[in-house]
Amino acid sequence: MTEPLHVVCPHCNTTNRVQAGDLAKSPDCGSCHGQLFTGTPVNLDAAGFERQLARSQLPLLVDFWAPWCGPCRQMAPAYEQAAAQLEPRVRVAKLNTDEAQGIGARLNIRSIPTLALFIGGQEVARQAGAMGAADIVRWTQSQLARARASA
């Protein structure tokens, strides 16, 4: 039997232990009983981002965006479609850089939308500019494969 994975609840930020084989079985949070995966991007604030980064053992794909950004709004439906395809193997999230300016500055986010992929709390890939759903999924899967090959 494999070790359980730590998965941070997108609703209450509680860390849950979930067997890898149970990820696709719609697991619930042990604390708030919300679904751990909804097939839609999780809207993170600064604290939620830090918690996902530090405690979750799933790869974390983040769309750094702002509400005034036209390309960000244009990409939002495609990002939703990509989330439905990538979860539960990847935590798909959005971070509003206007509300979390410190994180945007710390990570040197210079243009939006920017996608960043984190594994084990470390950024492993970044892509600036709007993309379609198929391109988001393809880019994420290729970066995951590349990261696994170099591990």
Score class of each variant (00 low, 15 high):
V92H: 09
L115Q: 07
G21I: 01
V124I: 08
L36G: 03
A133E: 11
D98L: 13
R55M: 08
A66M: 13
C29F: 13
L23D: 05
R89D: 14
A130L: 07
F64H: 10
C12L: 06
G48L: 06
N108R: 13
V42H: 12
G129Y: 04
A84I: 07
A133Y: 04
A47T: 09
K94N: 12
A133T: 09
T97C: 15
L95D: 09
C69G: 10
P4Y: 06
C29S: 10
D135R: 14
P71Q: 12
P67Y: 12
L95N: 08
L107T: 06
A130P: 05
D63P: 10
V137T: 13
R126F: 00
S142W: 00
V62G: 12
C29M: 13
A130D: 05
R106L: 06
S26A: 15
Q19I: 00
G102H: 04
A147T: 03
P41R: 13
I103S: 01
R89K: 13
N43V: 14
D22A: 15
V7H: 03
L44P: 08
C72Q: 12
V42G: 05
L144H: 05
C12R: 04
F49R: 03
R138E: 15
P41F: 12
P113D: 07
P41A: 11
R17G: 06
H6A: 13
L117K: 05
G39P: 03
L44R: 13
V8L: 05
Q35V: 00
A105I: 12
Q101I: 02
Q81W: 00
W139H: 08
D22L: 14
W65Y: 14
P59W: 02
Q19H: 11
D28S: 15
T140D: 11
D28W: 06
A78S: 15
P10L: 09
S111H: 09
V8M: 02
A133R: 07
T2D: 01
S56C: 08
S31F: 10
G102K: 04
Y79S: 10
T2I: 00
C12A: 05
R17W: 00
N108M: 08
